[in-house]
Computed example of a mutant assay.
Amino acid sequence: MDAASKVIAVMRADPLRWHLLGVVSALDLPDGWIGAGFVRNAIWDHLHGRPPSAPTGDVDVIWHDPFCVDAAKDRKLEAVLHVVEPAIPWSVKNQARMHGRNADEPYSSVTEAMRYWPETATAVAVRRVGKDDCEVAAPMGLGDLMQLVLRPTPHFAGKKRHIYEGRVRSKGWMKA
């Protein structure tokens, strides 16, 4: 089984994550996905032989619409998601506006935006397609995610490495 198929199988086997993917899919967002720790934690739990754990921290809903870059739209979407699943700490971000916060050139898609995220293993997103299908976006590949490798993306390997290192420390990823 290839890595993308494995990610999809792990998502399908986790009832809560599969449900949340359906909730986000129902919003019909342009280029809409759930990414970051939502995927990484599920895969790393699986690779460590642990049962699926509930998502910790924010559930990062990412989408891309260059014609709707008002942050208020993200807050409205979070409110809608909160009504459907109030126990989930939703975080919605239109990646079409995030380049400004990150001092990058505009991103043309969610996949391009993920190239500018701090860690390769976190630059992964999934989305439900139809009732039973799922897609994986991984612009940095799935190798590091599947091999439990923690490293910065090229964008965070140089001047921004201190940000990557701060994330590693604050999240406690290197603790046994």
Rank of each mutant, 00 (worst) to 15 (best):
A121G: 10
D58E: 10
N94D: 03
P15T: 04
W90I: 14
C68T: 14
D65L: 06
Q95H: 03
A138K: 02
M146E: 04
D132T: 07
D45I: 00
D45H: 01
A123R: 08
P139Y: 06
M146D: 02
R151A: 14
H99N: 14
A9C: 04
K73Q: 11
I8S: 01
R17T: 11
P52Q: 01
S25Q: 12
L148K: 06
K159F: 04
S5M: 07
R169I: 14
P89V: 05
E78L: 10
G172E: 10
W90Y: 09
W173M: 12
F38H: 11
L20Q: 12
R169K: 13
V124M: 04
S109G: 09
F38N: 13
E112H: 13
A36V: 15
L77W: 05
W117R: 14
H46Q: 11
K73E: 13
K93N: 15
D132F: 02
L148P: 15
L77G: 09
V110T: 15
P154F: 00
T153W: 06
R40C: 10
I163P: 02
D133I: 03
D60Q: 03
V110G: 11
H99G: 11
M11V: 15
M174A: 11
V129D: 15
W63T: 07
D144V: 02
G166Y: 00
M174Y: 00
I8L: 06
W44G: 10
A103P: 00
G37M: 05
N41V: 13
L142M: 05
V83Q: 13
V83M: 11
K160F: 08
Q95N: 08
G158P: 11
D65Q: 03
R127N: 10
N94M: 01
